[in-house]
């Protein structure tokens, strides 16, 4: 499948007059992995809320595979092929990892099918394979609330894959992970990107460096500030300024250097 999987035009979202997103334009090629960065309050999470149908745009439109998403609700958009991973891992804590994955893997999500039909063998095989991929095969049948934070993050990524979406939206997948877990998560995302379109929102610059092979988008105050390769973006004076705040010139030299070092590391 070629062409754009996601196109966003002139998107504005305002909450009581506050514009969380302001005339944002964005597009994603099929099969692309895009990293979105931006300071706090740049509108990153609202951006995902719009794509998944949680929030409706005030103006502008979002097209997924050429279809305007405004008329669809969350579960319909999900069935069209958009999967979302949340910032804090949201797995069903009273179910086991296997049951979590089975729910996500279910192909026909109607009431009747879920009630009457047993999960087909193909789905159970997929679940078994996924449990191995995310390293939870030996903990498949204990309650998910006994898993560690990192394991929950991985389980949620596994649930995302089980849905077999065309577009994966991943919100800060490495928040609270150790360095080793972070690297493994990066590898996992890179291997997923071979067969899916992926949008990753991230703060951790080290991690962005690991996974950003193509374009990086910088959001600021609800709009796209700039787009480009990670190395170019981090040298962009506009980007450095928004990460430093408006009074970049007046900030103490040490602080400025520290942030610059953070961006360049």
């Amino acid at each position: 499948m070629n062409g754009k999987i996601l196109e966003i035009e002139n998107l504005t979202v305002s909450f009581d007059g506050f514009k969380a997103l302001n005339k944002l334009n964005f597009s994603l090629d099929s099969g692309e992995l895009r990293v979105i960065i931006g300071p706090n309050g740049a509108g990153k999470t609202t951006f995902l809320d719009i794509i998944t149908g949680k929030t409706k745009p005030t103006a502008g439109q979002v097209r997924f595979k050429g279809r305007n998403l405004r008329a669809y609700s969350e579960h319909q958009i999900s069935q069209m092929g958009v999967g979302r991973k949340f910032q804090t891992p949201r797995v069903y804590l009273n179910l086991s990892p296997r049951e979590n994955l089975e729910l996500a893997c279910n192909r026909v999500k109607s009431v009747w099918n879920t009630l009457i039909r047993r999960s087909p063998i193909a789905e159970r095989r997929t679940v078994g394979g996924l449990l191995e991929t995310i390293g939870l095969d030996h903990k498949a049948d204990m309650k998910a609330n006994l898993l560690s934070h990192g394991e929950k993050q991985w389980l949620e990524i596994g649930m995302l894959v089980a849905q077999s979406p065309d577009l994966l939206l991943v919100d800060e997948p490495v928040a609270g992970l150790t360095d080793e877990e972070t690297e493994r998560t990066g590898d996992l995302l890179l291997s997923l990107a071979e067969s899916h379109s992926v949008i990753v929102i991230e703060h951790d610059m080290e991690f962005v460096r690991q996974i950003a092979q193509g374009q990086v988008t910088v959001l600021h105050q609800g709009s796209v500030l700039c787009e480009g390769l990670f190395d170019d973006v981090q040298r962009d004076p506009k980007v450095i300024e928004v990460y430093l705040g408006q009074d970049a010139e007046h900030v103490e030299g040490t602080a400025q250097d520290a942030i610059r070092a953070e961006l360049a590391s």
């Binding site: 579960h75 949340f86 179910l95 999500k109 047993r118």
Partner: peptide
């Protein structure tokens, strides 16, 4: 079965089930 696990999922995190592609309304009405 799967239905029962979805009920627990709705109880614990309803909006998450929407993002997984389920429409909880039908399940809850039933």
């Amino acid at each position: 079965g799967r239905f029962g696990r979805l009920l627990v999922a709705i109880r614990d995190d309803e909006s998450r089930t929407r993002f997984t592609g389920y429409n909880p309304t039908g399940f809850k009405v039933l």
